[in-house]
């Protein structure tokens, strides 16, 4: 599901099936790190969209969590804590953040959340088919990760 009116209606009708939230983390910067930040954002968003396409019926893909690269770790932690708090209040069983920025790792761990960290691959010089092949390849590996997490949670409940 995506954050659209139509998907939201489906979501309210089938809440019990949609137990997973995916949030892409997107950095903004206008200094020399800007280009990498933009490239990373593009990559992460494409991955997130493809994951949503595969798991539409169980994952709700939220609009990106946007932050500035010059935020301090403290700011970042505070922001993320608020997001985390709001999202765990609801009935979501699984909460995944996806980012190509390693600095989130420890922050997410402290919150006992799940961070999918993928090193970004620059896609700007690739044409459509090659781009798709790379995204496809990355996503394929992630799909198993999701299935395993779901399975593990079911095994605990069983």
């Amino acid at each position: 599901m995506r954050w659209t009116a139509q998907d939201f209606s489906t979501f309210t009708l089938s809440k019990e099936y949609i137990d997973t939230v995916l949030i892409p983390m997107v950095p903004i910067s206008f200094d020399e790190r800007g280009k990498d930040a933009a490239s990373g954002s593009e990559f992460i968003q494409m991955i997130a969209i493809e994951i949503e396409r595969q798991f539409k019926g169980r994952i709700l893909l939220l609009p990106s969590f946007v932050y500035f690269l010059n935020f301090s770790d403290q700011d970042k932690k505070m922001l993320l804590t608020k997001w985390h708090h709001e999202l765990t209040k609801k009935s979501f069983k699984h909460l995944f953040f996806i980012s190509s920025d390693q600095s989130w790792k420890s922050i997410v761990e402290q919150l006992k959340g799940e961070l999918i960290w993928i090193p970004s691959i620059p896609l700007e010089h690739l044409d459509g088919t090659n781009k798709m092949a790379i995204i496809d390849n990355q996503v394929k590996q992630l799909l198993n990760f999701f299935v395993e997490k779901w399975q593990a949670a079911e095994d605990v409940n069983a």
């Binding site: 489906t10 089938s14 099936y17 949609i18 396409r53 595969q54 798991f55 539409k56 019926g57 169980r58």
Partner: peptide
């Protein structure tokens, strides 16, 4: 490949 339940692949 779209599942008739909630649209997964």
């Amino acid at each position: 490949p779209v599942c008739k339940h909630l649209g997964c692949t």
